[in-house]
Every structure is written in C-alpha cells, then in structure tokens.
Design a protein around this nucleic acid. Structure first.
Length: 232
DNA sequence: AACCAGGACGTGA
DNA sequence: TCACGTCATGGT
C-alpha cells in the first residue's frame, strides 16, 4: 500500500464514513442539511444533483454552516430548481444567498452556471466545460464532478495542501493539477474512496490545521514524521 | 476584536 | 506565469 492509500485508511479508521455531499432534508418538521454516511445512492434525484452544484459554488471560501442558511433560503423560495432559477431576479437571489457571503459575485456565478446547466440538458459535463463557466475554478469543478455527477475526479483544496505539505508528501510549488494527479495516480479508481477521502481531509484539517502551531499535533504527522518524510 | 471559512477572478509586473 | 488585492457574511 502506498502512503496516499495508507493515510486514507488511517483517516477512515479514525473518523469513519463522512457521507458527503450533505443534502437538504426535512428532519422532524425542520429543514436541515444532512450527511448520509450509510447511503451511497445520493444524489438520487436530479433536484439533489442540482442542489449539490449550487452548494459547491456557495461554499467557495465560506464556512459550510453559512452555506446551509443560503441553501435553505433558496429552498424556501423554490429556487433550487434550474427552471425557477432562470426566472428569478438578481436582487431576490442575492438576498437569499446573503448568509454565504460574496453575494454579488456568487449570484452572478449561480446564474452563469444555471445557463450552462440548462444547456447541458441532463448530460454529464466535462471538466473542461465546467472550467469555461465563469465562477467555476478547479476545486468547484472537481466537487461538482465527484459529488453531483459521481465522476472520478479528485478534489484538492487548501486543507489538502496544508496537510500533505506538512506530511512532506507534496511540495509547496506544486500546481493544483499536479497534486490532483498525484492522488489519482496512487488511489484505486473508486468513487466512494475519492468522495470519502476529500471529506475526511476536510474533517481532519478542521481538528489539526486551523492554526500553524497545531500542525505538529496531527497524529498522522506524529506517527509518520520519522518514517514518511525520510523515504520520499 | 481580529481572523478565517470546504475559492475564483482581475490586475499589473 | 505569478503574486497580490478583492469579494462579504458569520464563528470564535
């Protein structure tokens, strides 16, 4: 087993399945965003697929709890629907997504993505197509591909950089695509592993990679700092 | 009360 | 290419 796989096994053993991407659901007469660690048949409906896409845009550089507020607002006005989204005016959209921050930019991004989405007509988009949409960068594109369309595309975020730089498995000057390729090269071609790995990275980073002085406390780092780094 | 969140874009060098 | 400023609300 290579180191990338080994770390995945460690994380999975520590935290268990994460059940990304969280989906809006009715929990005892109250709207919330739910993870689904025991159900890999999501998105089940195209409405959920669409919701994941919008959530991926809203969560750009934003805490997920604030995205949930925005998603629920959108749900309340029936706007989590590409046809309705097309007709909704910008001010209403901005007001709904306000809690997620950057509402001027994100409203534009959502509108642009919505045009693209309708034009797709239920086909699976390519990564190149997604990257052509204004407001969709590499991470958002990969999140949409992996979690909405279940395509084998590894997601790299700032947490991934922090953790694996600290573990000595990547270099600071590596590009997004280089890091992405390193993970894809070392992992089994398995959607579940790709989905869980990124989610586990985010969860782990929230515990040990918020501040620099925490990095050394990472149990994976503590266990491996004498073995992993030396054998690169 | 600064600081940062599951980034992306525009600009100037 | 690339480093840097900008976008904005809500937690600690």
């Amino acid at each position: 087993m290579n180191k990338i796989e080994l770390i995945y096994e460690n994380l999975y053993h520590m935290y268990g399945p994460q059940g990304w991407w969280p989906i809006i659901s009715n929990e005892n007469d109250r709207l919330t965003c739910m993870y689904h660690p025991n159900n890999f048949d999501i998105p089940k409906k195209t409405s959920q697929l669409y919701e994941i896409c919008i959530g991926a845009i809203l969560t750009q550089n934003t805490a997920w709890r604030n995205v949930v507020k925005a998603l629920i607002n959108l749900h309340q006005i029936q706007a989590l629907n590409p046809i309705k989204m097309q007709t909704i005016d910008n001010d209403t959209l901005k007001q709904a997504i306000r809690p997620a921050g950057y509402f001027n930019q994100k409203a534009k991004k959502i509108k642009q993505f919505n045009d693209f989405y309708l034009q797709l007509d239920h086909q699976v988009p390519s990564r190149e197509q997604l990257l052509c949409v204004w407001g969709i960068g590499p991470e958002t594109a990969d999140s949409i591909l992996l979690y909405a369309y279940k395509q084998l595309s590894f997601v790299v975020d700032t947490y991934t950089r922090r953790i694996f730089l600290n573990l000595g498995l990547i270099q600071a000057d590596m590009t997004y695509d280089e890091i992405k390729h390193k993970f894809e090269k070392n992992l089994k071609a398995d959607i579940k592993i790709y989905q869980e790995y990124h989610a586990l990275i985010v969860h782990h980073a929230k515990l040990y990679y918020q501040k620099k002085d925490q990095y050394a406390l990472d149990p994976i780092f503590r266990n491996s700092c004498f073995s992993l780094k030396e054998s690169i």
